[in-house]
Design a protein around this nucleic acid. Structure first.
Lengths: 295, 295
DNA sequence: AGACTCCATCGGCTGCGTTGATGGAGAATG
DNA sequence: CATTCTCCATCAACGCAGCCGATGGAGTCT
């Protein structure tokens, strides 16, 4: 490594302050030190970074591009310090969370924002998945937390319940089913059910709440499912988090199913027994289980 | 900036070589210099990076995490050097390309791979979009190149033709239309046409080749459209790049439309007149226009 | 025209990071 | 078990990289 972070910091200071002298003041150094650092960097890079028209020095276009890249390097270096400082206080450097797409993502992002606000240097990774894809991705990316709809029992996981999520059976207002009154399960049979399936699994497994429709359409995620429902392609279950607004607007209607057009389930939050959560993980866990709305 | 890249490089060398002494040899320094650098870094970070059991020094868990982050910082710094070296030879640091989703992405990625192989330090960004979303994203991300199906004339753009793309009218074999012989445009009317629309536009604009179907379903991208076609949701146009394999397998069939079930168009490659392309941009342009298959 | 600000350059000095030597501790070998 | 080897910590000594302050040229402001 020939170039030094210090030189890059000088570059940054020059841009922030608008000149060598001002940069020198900001860095508490003599102006000549700044000149020296710049000249040296220019020689090392073999590139002219500034136009000296005898008066104020301006970045050359190339200089500005180097500056841009330099700032990334500085940020990376600062992350090293932040990680170190964080480790001291129990913050882990990485926290990966897999979230089932049926669960609302809003609270997760809100909780992560709170973590940031608390000064956590942790690099948080959020991955969304569906059905069997949830535990699969959990293992694939070696994640720390998992928010799933339902989970096959595993000895290595510690589970916590989250607040209930409600699913509603809906369709577009133009859909034939929307015209009917009381709907029997049998009458659903004549129409297309839209289902989210796990694109990673070899064959789409029948979901517990898949109604006995002869024709089923399989979609990769709940966003697509929402779109397909709005387009009137069929009927299907949506979590209330994805359709309350649409129901109010009348873009979707709830189907009056005889045995109940809604069902609830308690999603699960899981983390590994063998690897204790860091401070960020514990904080996120606390925020999520405290939230009235899960996930 | 208190920590120095040099110290991080020492850390990296220790891990690669497996010890302080070996690292010192790799770095062509005395072993004491390595010890000194490590001690200093540990003090600066306020963290013990190594377990000294009197014999070989091992990374502590914290040390390994710091090392991981340090490597990112080193890579970022090396990018600064690479950018500078590249600028010297005309490489631009960033090249953003917007590609219409109807065009095959394969050749684009192949061309980018060739750029990498040629040692380009350029950070290439590829964004996929549909219809009106293509020029919109081009402006939004201030991209350099755009590969579009059709483009409203703009004075600030220089246009080049690409190789033809062929679209085929297809449906699933189980679809009623697949059973028929010669299909008139009117007979399509009774069935659902699947269309890709630009989710960013206020209202889905009627596409030129949208047949006069009374029921149209709007999908966000060609991946969804392909899925929907396979599921038998309706009929629609697909580029041959997305369906030749499926046609051979029999998963989709071509619909014998009276006035032709295929049409071709010449996609356009555009770049800004006011901003000359860098070496990577010119190379990519050359690779793309030379390719038999466009996009 | 004079006063300022800006940046380049130079001599001189300080101290950081280097080297090489030394020593303690575990590992390898017989 | 003794010997030898490698590994790392520590220390004194030193050299040069990088800092400072001064000086000077060039452009700007009033």
């Amino acid at each position: 490594m020939r170039i030094t972070l210090d030189a890059l910091e000088v570059l940054d200071a020059i841009d922030r302050e608008g000149g060598f002298s001002a940069a020198a003041r900001r860095l508490h150094r003599a102006q000549s030190a700044v000149s020296y650092a710049v000249r040296q960097l220019e020689e090392q890079l073999g590139l002219q970074l500034f136009d000296r028209d005898g008066w104020r020095a301006h970045f050359t276009p190339a200089g500005r591009l180097v500056l841009d890249e330099a700032r990334r390097a500085l940020a990376a270096a600062q992350r090293v310090e932040a990680i170190a400082a964080g480790l001291d206080q129990g913050w882990e450097p990485r926290l990966a969370v897999v979230v089932d797409a049926v669960l609302p993502l809003g609270p997760v992002f809100a909780a992560i924002a709170e973590l940031d606000a608390a000064g956590a240097p942790t690099r948080v990774e959020v991955v969304s998945a569906t059905l069997g894809g949830v535990p699969r991705r959990f293992d694939e990316i070696d994640a720390d937390l998992m928010l799933a709809k339902e989970l096959a029992p595993r000895a290595d996981l510690h589970l916590l319940p989250l607040a209930e999520v409600e699913m509603v059976l809906v369709a577009a207002p133009a859909h034939p089913l929307a015209q009917q009154g009381g709907i029997s399960r049998a009458s659903l049979d004549a129409h297309r059910e839209l289902l989210v399936y796990d694109s990673g699994a070899p064959m789409p497994a029948a979901s517990e709440h898949a109604l006995g429709s002869s024709r089923r359409f399989l979609l990769a995620d709940f966003g697509s499912k929402q779109q397909a429902l709005l387009a009137g392609l069929g009927y299907g279950w949506l979590p209330t988090s994805l359709c309350t607004g649409l129901l109010q607007q009348g873009a979707l209607v709830e189907l009056p199913l005889e045995h109940g057009s809604r069902f609830r389930f308690v999603p699960t939050l899981a983390h590994r027994r063998d690897r204790p959560l860091g401070r960020a993980g514990r904080a996120l866990l606390g925020l999520l289980t405290a939230e009235p709305s899960p996930g």
